[in-house]
């Protein structure tokens, strides 16, 4: 009966491995974490480069100044909140505001803790390339956009002007805005930021006009200078009903968020991530190294850290 013995042994092993009691998978780390038996921090890597810059610099400091091992996982914004609440990631280094998730995970369940300002203010808006705005200065007011609709037509916009939107994970009211401001435009979703950037660069190479959803701070402004189109001014609460929005996007101070357990027991790593605070120029400097000079995030972070010691010294936990 060797086979039976083998199968019983296998079953026994499995039971041992999994434990016989309850298994809460909401507190479970990645199998790739802590491979060399060291203290590990997992950071959420977001898809846009500004957030990558935060993560890269935080990672570099954690690894080289505090001796942690850092894993990064790329996840979209909303699933990242979910992962953060479960401790699959320890921190999100840049968030653009998710009221619904904040209510659920911070106020109701207490699984996530606020980590303070990043020091950068984010702003979403509609942009045209500066070469086009210089040739037609009145395009920067939304009331005049219709005049230029036929210049902004593409095969995808069905006879109207094209308003290029990007990744489905980003906050956008553009469909409602176009409808409520009664503009002769069609929102075309590029489906990913990579596709949107590629298209913008392609337009810019040929000096063609375009109108796009875009956000600041963003490294692409250094490559393709763009001018914002003024939308009706933002007032507190004017974007409360997503179907009736008819105003510009707010200016959002970007936030960090930590898993509650990590925030309390994460020691020096948690302290460093809470203290992390820099400016738009710093972030852009690193972003540009990553996105334009094609340095790897680690190399870019190393370069920045070497040149800016006084800034990050203040973030290190006091011993």
């Amino acid at each position: 009966m060797p086979r039976r013995i083998v199968s019983m042994a296998a079953a026994g092993l499995l039971l041992l491995a999994t434990g016989c009691g309850a298994a809460d998978m909401t507190v479970q780390s990645s199998p790739f974490a802590a491979a060399e038996g060291s203290k590990t921090v997992t950071l959420s890597q977001q898809s846009w480069v500004g957030a990558q810059a935060n993560t890269a610099v935080a990672k570099y400091l954690l690894e080289h100044e505090l001796g942690y091992r850092v894993d990064t996982v790329q996840v979209d914004e909303v699933p990242a909140w979910d992962a953060l609440s479960q401790g699959r990631v320890d921190a999100i280094m840049e968030d653009w505001g998710h009221p619904e998730q904040e209510q659920r995970y911070i106020e109701d369940k207490g699984l996530i803790t606020r980590g303070g300002d990043v020091g950068v203010t984010g702003h979403i808006g509609w942009y045209v390339p500066t070469y086009f705005a210089k040739a037609h200065p009145d395009v920067t007011d939304w009331r005049n956009l219709d005049k230029y609709a036929d210049q902004l037509r593409t095969a995808e916009s069905g006879g109207k002007g094209q308003l290029l939107d990007g990744s489905p994970s980003y906050v956008t009211n553009d469909k409602a805005l176009v409808k409520n401001l009664k503009l002769d435009y069609q929102v075309v979703f590029a489906g990913s930021e990579a596709a949107q950037i590629t298209q913008i660069k392609q337009f810019a190479k040929e000096k063609k006009p375009f109108l796009t959803y875009w956000y600041k701070p963003q490294w692409l402004f250094e490559k393709v200078p763009m001018t914002e189109v003024k939308l009706p001014a933002y007032k507190e609460g004017c974007d409360a009903d997503p179907d009736k929005v008819a105003c510009a996007y707010p200016h959002t101070p970007l936030q960090k968020f930590l898993n509650t357990d990590f925030a309390q027991n994460g020691g020096e790593a948690a302290a460093l991530l809470k203290n992390f605070h820099w400016s738009e120029e710093h972030q852009n400097e690193v972003s540009l190294m990553i996105a334009d000079q094609k340095l790897s995030p680690d190399e870019a972070a190393e370069k920045w850290v070497k040149a800016n010691e006084p800034i990050w010294r203040k973030w290190l936990p006091k011993k």
Partner: peptide
């Protein structure tokens, strides 16, 4: 997800077994 028996006694074990074997 963190309290119901279906998750604690069934799915959680599957999840842990996967993590254990991959690791």
């Amino acid at each position: 997800r963190d309290s119901h028996p279906l998750f604690l006694y069934f799915l959680g074990h599957i999840s842990n077994a996967v993590v254990f074997s991959v690791r």
